[in-house]
Computed example of a mutant assay.
Amino acid sequence: MWKTKKLFNTESEKTLALIVDELHKFLGNIIAKSKEIFVAGEDLEDKDVSARIVRRAQGEQLDETFLVNTTVSFVMAGQDTICSALTWFFWRLFPPIPLYSKEAVEDDIWPDGKKVKKGTSIIYHIFAMGTSQELWSSDWADFHLERWLERRKSGTSYNDDRNFIARDPFTYPVFQAAPRTCLGKEIAVVLMKMVVATILKRFLLFYSVFLGTRFCI
């Protein structure tokens, strides 16, 4: 419906356009000041997202529009998804975004031979993938620490030490994958670690929590 409303320039779309324009101008001014500081040879401390983006963009042929859009992505994607991720953190079953969609910008062929035409919308259900018996076996609802641990091999035998093995992002694409990986992934992970460290120290942990069962006061 928004395409139709935008075509006829309805009141809501007109208001949205004004707000977006103001936001872009505001962020554009911040980025321009950060670039001036950097060009002047002054120390550009990474005190905010825009400063870090400008620093990382040096040497790349990136125009100001790209930098502004990247900053908007951090603001919009970071706020809602991080809040949602923290809300559901202790229930592993619920990802910040239950499903996501993409649109093919040109004709493509998937690895399995399936042809995708330009303009085709692809929707994948992250929540369903996280509860799939095909991917996680029949005990998908249980938390087993061993799912992410692999016994270390010493010579020709295995010992009791274990390594953490991260699941590939295509199996459970909570933060998406490859070039489309979420911009706020690292921020979200750091914040979740901080929240867990702050909350769990208020609880009495039983040994069973390390085996993947539960904890209580």
Rank of each mutant, 00 (worst) to 15 (best):
K115N: 07
E11N: 11
A77R: 04
A85L: 09
T131S: 14
Y100T: 13
Y207K: 14
F203S: 05
R167G: 10
G113D: 10
P98W: 05
I126R: 03
T87D: 03
I199K: 12
G59W: 04
E186P: 00
Q58R: 14
P179H: 08
V72A: 03
F90G: 02
T70L: 15
M1E: 05
G212T: 09
K117H: 10
T71R: 01
L27C: 06
A141P: 00
K102S: 06
I53D: 00
V49Y: 09
L16S: 11
L7K: 14
D21H: 12
R56H: 07
A51G: 07
A128Q: 11
D112E: 12
S137Y: 08
R152S: 09
L211P: 01
E64P: 01
I199P: 02
E11A: 12
F89C: 05
V54M: 06
R92C: 04
K115L: 07
T15F: 09
D108M: 06
A32C: 03
D168Y: 08
D63I: 00
T171G: 09
Q61P: 00
I19W: 02
K117M: 03
A51Q: 09
V195W: 01
R52T: 12
A197L: 03
G184M: 03
A177K: 04
S84E: 09
K117L: 07
M194E: 08
L16T: 08
T213K: 14
Y100I: 08
L99D: 12
K193M: 09
Y172F: 13
V209F: 12
V196I: 14
I109M: 04
W2M: 10
K33R: 13
G78V: 02
A85C: 07
R92A: 12
L67C: 01
V39Q: 15
V54R: 04
K35G: 02
I217L: 13
C216S: 08
Y207S: 15
T171Q: 13
A141V: 06
V195R: 03
V54I: 11
M129L: 15
T213S: 15
Q61S: 12
E146M: 05
P173L: 07
G184Q: 05
S84Q: 11
E60H: 13
R214I: 00
K47P: 00
V49P: 00
R202C: 08
G28D: 01
V75F: 15
H125N: 15
L7R: 14
L62S: 06
I19F: 05
L145W: 11
D107S: 12
V20L: 12
S208M: 04
F175I: 08
Q79A: 06
A85V: 01
G41A: 09
A177N: 10
G130C: 05
G113I: 06
F164E: 02
G130F: 01
E60S: 14
A178G: 15
Q79I: 10
Y172M: 08
T181Q: 13
T10H: 05
R151M: 08
I19Y: 06
V39K: 15
S138N: 14
I53W: 01
D63K: 06
K102C: 08
A141G: 01
L18Q: 14
F127Y: 15
P169Y: 02
N29R: 11
L99R: 15
K193T: 04
L7G: 04
L16N: 11
L93Q: 12
F210T: 03
W110H: 01
K102Q: 10
W148Q: 13
V195N: 01
R151F: 13
G41S: 11
M76H: 10
V174S: 06
I165D: 04
C182E: 04
D48A: 10
K118L: 03
